[in-house]
């Protein structure tokens, strides 16, 4: 009998392997199993802690508190809970706290569906008030949920930007029998509150000028580190004439399309792994010589406006194929592309 692992379980394993010590969460489909899995591990190993908080607002702020002590901490949520995380994320953006959140996208707005969507991209990448910076990864497989969860902790603690990993309900609940190589090194974490040299941290400023200066420091850090963080994958890009741009599980379906029809229909895939910072340099390079770009997402105009911004100034036809909160099969993708190509 093969050992199966679900997406949510992979997240828990990665958090453990990264050296996370605390999880704060609230039950919400389709991320609840992350909280439950963590609690099971906590009770069995007695090495880590958790709180099931009164809501996601508290969960996010508990993360902000825990990281001050140099302890790796995270939360996991979805949909309406993701909205509630924006308050704590904003604080983490302003104060450069190593906050990690795993978000399993579901259909919104409001309660919506509990299953699947790619509709939380805007919220994840740009949901704060003010010009804050946060890193957003998008996983396209169960294995990537493990790898990118681990990477989220690394990125957050190394570069001090709050980091979100986006998955979705299908990825969260699907199980795979593929073995996932485990990491055997924990992420290094340092204290922000030092007893020998106390710090006074605030996020409220009296004058616009002093705040502007403070924000300029953040911007400088982002400019410096963004090129190191931005990541993407090219799948049969060089030999193609038509380029699909898709992320997450939709990209996985697109890969299947390319495996079947790539040669006949000359299509390749550019898959952003980070949605923010977006790997603009790589995309601008990938579109050279391409006849058309197809941006495919299970949302309306969320990935596509990031793509269009990244490609601004270039003369290239961009076609948006969107199905808010509904997935694509590989057959559907090729049908739609062929329809556009006549």
């Amino acid at each position: 009998m093969r050992n199966h692992i679900t997406g949510n379980e992979a997240v828990v394993l990665a958090a453990i392997d990264a050296g996370a010590k605390l999880m704060f969460g609230y039950p919400i489909t389709p991320a609840t199993e992350i909280l439950e899995g963590w609690i099971k591990y906590a009770n069995e190993s007695k090495k880590v802690g958790y709180i099931q908080t009164e809501d996601e607002i508290a969960a996010g702020f508990c993360v902000n508190g825990a990281v001050l002590a140099g302890k790796i901490a995270f939360t996991a949520s979805a949909g309406p809970g993701h909205i509630l995380l924006q308050d704590s994320l904003s604080m983490a953006e302003n104060m450069r706290l190593p906050y990690v959140a795993i978000v399993m996208q579901r259909g919104g707005p409001s309660t919506g569906t509990v299953n699947f969507s790619q509709q939380e991209v805007n919220l994840a990448a740009f949901g704060g008030n003010g010009d804050g910076y946060r890193v957003v990864y998008s996983a396209s497989s169960v294995r990537e949920l493990y790898d990118l969860t681990y990477k989220s902790f690394q990125t957050a603690w190394k570069y001090r930007f709050p980091t979100i990993l986006l998955g979705d309900g299908y990825l969260a609940k699907m199980s795979t029998d593929l073995a996932i190589p485990r990491k055997n090194k924990t992420v290094s974490a340092t204290k922000i509150f030092d007893t020998e040299h106390p710090v006074n941290l605030r996020n409220c400023f009296s004058t616009e000028e002093s705040f502007g200066e403070y924000l300029s420091d953040h911007e400088a850090a982002w400019r410096k580190f963004a090129p190191k963080i931005a990541e993407s994958e090219k799948f049969f890009v060089d030999e193609s004439k038509y380029l699909i741009v898709a992320h997450g599980l939709v990209a996985a379906a697109a890969k299947e399309t390319i495996v079947k029809y790539g040669k006949t229909d000359h299509i390749g895939l550019f898959r952003p792994i980070t949605l923010n910072p977006f790997d603009q340099v790589a995309l601008r390079d990938a579109v050279v010589g391409k006849k058309k770009i197809f941006v495919i997402e299970s949302a309306k105009n969320q990935l596509s406006h990031i793509v269009k911004y990244a490609l601004s100034g270039l003369k290239i036809e961009i076609i948006e194929i969107s199905k808010p909160a509904q997935g694509f099969t590989s057959e559907e993708i090729i049908t739609k592309i062929r329809k556009h190509n006549g």
């Binding site: 010590k21 605390l22 704060f24 802690g49 709180i51 908080t53 607002i57 508290a58 969960a59 702020f61 508990c62 993360v63 902000n64 508190g65 825990a66 990281v67 001050l68 002590a69 140099g70 302890k71 901490a73 308050d87 704590s88 904003s90 604080m91 509150f193 030092d194 007893t195 106390p198 710090v199 006074n200 941290l201 605030r202 996020n203 409220c204």
Partner: peptide, 20 residues
């Protein structure tokens, strides 16, 4: 060591800190 939090959020921040 002092941290200014968001409105109404001081309790959870200190709860998280104390746990850590």
């Amino acid at each position: 060591n002092t941290i200014q939090t968001h409105h109404g959020r001081t309790a959870p921040v200190m709860v998280g800190y104390k746990m850590a």
